[in-house]
Nucleic acid binder design. Structure first.
Lengths: 218, 218
DNA sequence: ACAAGAAATGAACCACGGTTCACGGGCAGG
DNA sequence: CCTGCCCGTGAACCGTGGTTCATTTCTTGT
């Protein structure tokens, strides 16, 4: 017997691992997963490319880990709100606002998590992420239906609609221009949230029509 | 002077071009754009790989053309409905049903057009496609608002929400399992359409609640 | 039939970026 | 101090798949 890892070494190893993950995360935040190249990660983390492979078996493994860490944070916030004890409608509003609000503000990262073209391996990770979102929405909707706050709808489908509408309207080609968003993110968020709330049948204030009397549809 | 393209040749060239495009389209319909490899296209079209480059300057150019042709068909149908002279609410219902209905039935192709991870070049093409969708929706919404059928909302945002909700709820990881969809596609389509209609404030029948009296929200 | 030019061919080429591996340096234990 | 082991290194390697190009095959007009 001639070698046994000492605590100091273990700590250093953990540090290096961390710095690799951080480097990768930074690259994602800057340019999406497409910008993650092993040589770049290594450079940024201050290690050699070969070293990366002492900590992660492949690029895929590294990216998966990054995706998990980043998305776990987001899901955690939503889950916490969802498990609160306010009325379903209220929790719904809060969850939607949080989701949309964080997405507008961390747009590049949100893009990477939700909309960026990824290859299949990471797409799996994203699928899990989005399913979790949908589950959170669905859970709240169920509560609302159970106690009569919301009309009877298919919660899975409604949840999927919400999970699709929000990112689409906020990031990617259908989103308002960045400068528009930056100038007044909250108004956009509010409009989207309203759409989703109306979609699931939450009655809300302020449905003015252009002409004061409403014509009937044919 | 010793050579001048004759009509027969021109026709043959057009044929070859067509068969290349068809081959590529078939591959897309089977396995998405990811499945398009130049050697495969050539094999399927019955030509040599080099020949492909006499008709298309690059793989990208070929794929773009395929994307355009396929998406043009879809947009055409929607545009036609949109330009009809029924009431806005009615046109909206029809457009949404058509969009969603075609997506469920041609799921693989819809996936390629709307959800498949693509590289940036093709993503551009997709962006155009989706923007066009959104524009069609927005136009109808505007009509509806102008004549008082619909409440005042931001039509661009609502359109983006719709354009996000429908594909997300129908294809990809948040969609119901394929066998579920196949067994009763219309119910799912209807549910999604209802969500979107409600989202933009179209009053619709059948909003039962679970308990007959509705509790008021806090 | 023949020359001139276009079209088709497909094996070879090349770029790209993830992965490997033989080596040098330091840390633990005797 | 010395042995053994592990960590770190980074240039070289390699698989993949799009692209090229010298050659062959067809087409046209004389």
């Amino acid at each position: 017997m001639a070698y046994r890892k000492t605590d100091k070494v273990t700590a250093r190893l953990a540090d290096t691992r961390r710095s690799i993950l951080d480097a990768a995360r930074d690259l994602v935040a800057e340019g999406g997963f497409a910008a993650v190249q092993m040589t770049e990660v290594a450079k940024k983390a201050g290690v050699a490319t070969g070293t990366l492979y002492r900590y992660f078996s492949s690029k895929e493994a590294l990216c998966r880990q990054v995706f998990r860490e980043v998305s776990a944070r987001e899901m955690g916030m939503l889950a916490e709100i969802a498990s609160g004890d306010e009325a379903a409608g209220e929790r719904l509003v809060q969850v939607l606002r949080t989701f949309a609000g964080r997405a507008v503000r961390g747009r590049r990262l949100a893009y990477a998590l939700l909309a960026e073209p990824l290859d299949v391996n990471l797409a799996e990770e994203r699928a899990f992420f989005r399913r979790t979102h949908a589950d959170i929405f669905a859970r709240i909707l169920e509560d609302g239906i159970d106690n009569g706050e919301l009309p009877l709808i298919d919660v899975r489908i409604a949840a999927a609609c919400i999970a699709g509408a929000i990112p689409t309207a906020l990031i990617g080609p259908l989103a308002p221009e960045s400068h528009e968003l930056d100038s007044n993110p909250d108004r956009t968020v509010e409009e989207i949230v309203n759409f989703c709330l109306a979609g699931v049948g939450v009655a809300r204030a302020g449905s003015k029509t252009k002409n004061m009397e409403r014509r009937t549809t044919a």
